[in-house]
C-alpha cells in the first residue's frame, strides 16, 4: 500500500464525518481544539491539527501533543476484536506518546470519532475502499456501520 493511502483515508474520513455527522465533527473539533496529532501507520506519516470547527492536514511536528505509531495489521486486529486497544498498547503494537492528560483527551476523541463513524453510512464505502487498496489481510470486518 502506498504511504499516502492512510493519509488519504484519514482526510476523507474526517471530511465525510463533517458532511454526514456534522454534530459529532463539531464536538470532536471542540474536544481536541489546539491539539496536533502525529500518526505514523506503516510508512505513512500524517499530521492533523484540530481547530474550532475544522481539522487541518499538517502542522508543526515538534508541537504534536500525541504521537501514534502502529501498523495496519495492529489497527485491524483491534477493530476486529482480536486484540483490545489496551493489549495492543501493552504489546507495543500500538505506541502512544503524550502526557496523560493529552492521551486521555485523545482517547475520548478517538471514541467520539468512531461513534460518528458508525452513524455515518458513507464510512462503509470508505472502509471498503481502504481495505481493497491494502494487502489482503483476509480478516477485517471493520467495514460496517452499526444498525439493524
Amino acid at each position: 500500500m502506498a504511504p499516502d493511502q492512510f493519509q488519504d483515508f484519514l482526510g476523507r474520513s474526517l471530511g465525510l464525518l463533517a458532511r454526514e455527522k456534522p454534530s459529532v465533527y463539531a464536538r470532536l473539533c471542540t474536544l481536541l481544539d489546539g491539539m496536533v496529532l502525529s500518526l505514523r501507520i506503516d510508512a505513512a506519516s500524517v499530521l492533523v491539527t484540530f481547530k474550532p470547527g475544522a481539522t487541518v492536514a499538517g502542522g508543526d511536528s515538534s508541537a504534536a501533543a500525541v504521537r501514534v505509531q502502529s501498523d495496519r495489521r495492529a489497527i485491524l486486529d483491534v477493530i476486529d476484536g482480536k486484540s483490545t486497544l489496551e493489549q495492543a498498547v501493552l504489546d507495543d503494537r500500538i505506541e502512544l506518546l503524550g502526557s496523560v492528560a493529552d492521551l486521555v483527551r485523545f482517547h475520548d476523541g478517538l471514541r467520539m470519532y468512531l461513534n460518528g463513524a458508525v452513524r455515518a453510512p458513507g464510512f462503509a464505502v470508505l472502509l471498503d475502499d481502504y481495505l481493497a487498496e491494502g494487502p489482503n489481510l483476509g480478516t477485517a470486518h471493520a467495514a460496517s456501520t452499526g444498525g439493524r
Binding site: 477493530i79 476484536g81 486497544l85 478517538l110 468512531l114 458508525v118 477485517a140 471493520a142 460496517s144
Partner: peptide
C-alpha cells in the same frame, strides 16, 4: 464477547 460491528471493541470494550 463477539461484537458487531467490530469497531465496537474500541467504542465499548
Amino acid at each position: 464477547l463477539f461484537k458487531l460491528p467490530g469497531v465496537m471493541n474500541v467504542i465499548d470494550p
